[in-house]
Amino acid sequence: NTCEECGKPIGCDCKDLSYKDRHWHEACFHCSQCRNSLVDKPFAAKEDQLLCTDCYSNEY
């Protein structure tokens, strides 16, 4: 699979995080606004962007 954020392949030695058929490296899986990691945290998706709950609450 190819990472949505950096565009590089996700190798066998990396954790592949996925959501709705989109894939990310663990280090690339972060909020589109504040850039905080979303690994093991709740998040929301809006208009193809992933947002942490704080940024989502502030926007919507």
Results as ranks from 00 to 15, higher is better:
44 A>V: 06
24 W>F: 07
54 D>Q: 10
18 S>M: 09
49 Q>D: 09
49 Q>E: 11
29 F>A: 15
19 Y>A: 05
31 C>W: 00
6 C>N: 00
9 P>E: 07
23 H>K: 07
19 Y>I: 11
35 R>C: 10
50 L>I: 03
3 C>Y: 01
50 L>E: 03
30 H>K: 13
7 G>L: 14
35 R>P: 11
11 G>M: 04
1 N>P: 00
51 L>G: 04
54 D>L: 07
44 A>E: 15
36 N>W: 05
57 S>P: 15
31 C>S: 02
36 N>E: 12
7 G>K: 03
37 S>F: 04
34 C>A: 00
28 C>D: 04
32 S>I: 09
48 D>M: 08
3 C>I: 00
51 L>P: 05
46 K>S: 11
26 E>D: 13
45 A>S: 09
8 K>T: 13
43 F>S: 12
21 D>A: 09
34 C>F: 01
50 L>K: 06
10 I>N: 01
45 A>Y: 08
32 S>E: 13
23 H>L: 02
23 H>S: 05
12 C>Y: 12
46 K>Q: 14
54 D>K: 10
33 Q>D: 14
39 V>I: 12
37 S>K: 11
59 E>W: 08
19 Y>P: 01
6 C>M: 00
49 Q>I: 10
36 N>S: 13
1 N>V: 13
55 C>R: 03
17 L>K: 14
10 I>C: 07
19 Y>R: 05
23 H>P: 00
27 A>N: 15
22 R>T: 06
14 C>P: 12
25 H>R: 00
5 E>P: 01
56 Y>P: 13
46 K>V: 12
10 I>M: 03
22 R>G: 10
27 A>E: 11
22 R>Y: 08
9 P>N: 01
41 K>E: 10
19 Y>G: 02
45 A>Q: 13
25 H>Q: 00
51 L>H: 11
36 N>T: 12
46 K>C: 07
32 S>F: 10
34 C>I: 04
31 C>G: 01
7 G>M: 10
44 A>H: 01
37 S>Y: 06
14 C>S: 15
27 A>W: 09
59 E>A: 15
27 A>S: 11
41 K>P: 05
53 T>N: 14
2 T>L: 09
51 L>D: 04
15 K>Y: 02
40 D>T: 09
57 S>V: 07
40 D>C: 07
12 C>A: 15
54 D>V: 07
42 P>R: 14
15 K>T: 10
3 C>V: 00
53 T>F: 03
35 R>T: 07
12 C>H: 15
32 S>K: 12
57 S>G: 15
11 G>E: 08
16 D>W: 05
33 Q>T: 11
53 T>C: 08
20 K>W: 02
31 C>I: 02
6 C>P: 03
10 I>D: 00
24 W>Y: 14
18 S>N: 11
5 E>M: 12
42 P>A: 15
42 P>V: 07
53 T>D: 09
24 W>K: 03
44 A>G: 14
14 C>W: 07
16 D>S: 09
38 L>E: 03
6 C>D: 01
56 Y>C: 13
17 L>M: 15
39 V>G: 12
50 L>W: 07
58 N>M: 11
51 L>R: 11
33 Q>K: 09
37 S>L: 10
27 A>G: 12
3 C>G: 00
18 S>D: 12
32 S>A: 15
60 Y>H: 15
48 D>A: 10
38 L>D: 01
45 A>K: 11
45 A>C: 03
14 C>D: 13
16 D>A: 05
30 H>N: 11
54 D>R: 11
39 V>N: 11
34 C>V: 01
42 P>K: 14
42 P>N: 15
15 K>W: 00
38 L>F: 08
35 R>V: 08
4 E>P: 03
22 R>W: 09
16 D>G: 07
60 Y>G: 15
21 D>V: 00
24 W>P: 04
9 P>H: 05
33 Q>A: 11
11 G>H: 05
52 C>K: 08
24 W>S: 05
44 A>Y: 03
34 C>H: 00
30 H>Y: 08
41 K>R: 12
54 D>Y: 07
29 F>V: 06
28 C>I: 00
54 D>T: 08
47 E>V: 05
7 G>V: 07
39 V>Q: 11
45 A>E: 15
60 Y>S: 15
6 C>F: 00
29 F>R: 03
23 H>D: 00
29 F>H: 03
29 F>L: 05
35 R>Q: 14
58 N>R: 12
49 Q>C: 08
3 C>K: 01
20 K>A: 10
60 Y>D: 15
46 K>P: 12
5 E>R: 11
6 C>W: 00
15 K>M: 08
2 T>N: 00
43 F>E: 12
39 V>Y: 06
60 Y>A: 15
2 T>Y: 01
12 C>F: 11
10 I>S: 01
32 S>L: 07
55 C>F: 01
46 K>F: 04
1 N>F: 10
57 S>E: 14
53 T>W: 01
2 T>F: 07
22 R>S: 10
26 E>R: 06
20 K>N: 12
42 P>L: 05
36 N>R: 11
14 C>R: 08
52 C>R: 05
44 A>D: 15
30 H>D: 06
